[in-house]
Amino acid sequence: MEKNPTIYLTKFLVFTLLITYSLKVNAQDYEEVSTKNPFWEKVQIGGGLGLGFGSNFTNITVAPSAIYNINEYVSAGVGLQYSYVNQKGFYKSNIYGGSLIALVNPIQQIQVSVELEQLRVNTSFNSTFGGVTDNFWNTALFLGAGYRTNNVTIGIRYNVLYKENQGVYADPFIPFIRVYF
């Protein structure tokens, strides 16, 4: 009996949304406590959520992250990522891992970033001659720059470790929208 990944993915997304909502509610409850501990006053939480659907195609990404504001110019943090990609009848892929990020704001409107990302890629291909799997680690080192307004930054990043036709990224340049609360 084949397991249905949609059920597991739905459970994962519901769990993630409940945890995210719980963190938001708890953050409001602990507002009084955070004024006593200056560490938490400098922590910001953000991340990304990606959904892509098409003709027999599904792409779902969940990527939470957190940064610590060292001062008004420099921040450092960590992130997690999980992606599920499925082209019905062709391939399925689970991608998961983490990243380290450093942000520098030389002036209030400009943000420069360095991000080291390590992802595990587990892909299975279906073909007329049988199934093939491809499991590997994908390492990326992104250098980015963007325009910043309040807690939102819009920009582009470049993967200096990019090799054509290798890894999970189709292009070394990737636009981004970064939001931290």
Rank of each mutant, 00 (worst) to 15 (best):
Y82L: 06
V74H: 07
V43E: 00
V62W: 05
V85P: 01
K42V: 03
I110S: 02
L17F: 15
N56P: 03
F57W: 08
Y96K: 04
E41A: 15
Q109R: 12
L100R: 04
T35D: 10
Y96V: 08
I60M: 06
V104T: 12
L49H: 05
L18P: 00
S99L: 13
N105G: 09
N69Y: 05
N69R: 14
T20Y: 09
V78I: 15
G77P: 00
L23T: 08
F53S: 09
G52C: 08
P106H: 14
S75E: 04
D29A: 09
L51C: 05
Q44C: 09
E32Q: 08
V62G: 00
V14Q: 05
N56W: 02
S83W: 02
T10Q: 12
I45L: 13
K11F: 11
I67Q: 00
V33Y: 12
V104A: 13
I67K: 00
V43W: 06
G54R: 10
K11C: 13
L18M: 13
L17S: 14
G48E: 05
A66R: 01
S55N: 15
P64H: 06
D29N: 13
N86W: 07
N71H: 09
W40R: 04
L103R: 04
G77W: 00
G46Y: 01
V62L: 12
A63H: 04
I67T: 02
V62K: 00
V85E: 05
L49K: 01
K24R: 14
I70C: 09
Y68H: 06
G97D: 07
G79C: 08
V33S: 10
S65V: 03
S22A: 15
P106D: 15
N37P: 04
F90C: 01
V33L: 14
T20R: 06
F90V: 14
T16K: 06
Y73A: 14
L13H: 02
V85R: 01
E41Q: 15
N105R: 14
Y73P: 03
V33R: 03
S93R: 07
F15A: 14
K11H: 11
I110Y: 03
F90Q: 06
I110H: 05
T10V: 11
S34E: 12
F12G: 02
E32K: 00
V104N: 09
G79D: 06
F53E: 04
E72T: 10
Y8C: 06
I95R: 02
E31K: 14
G50P: 04
N59P: 03
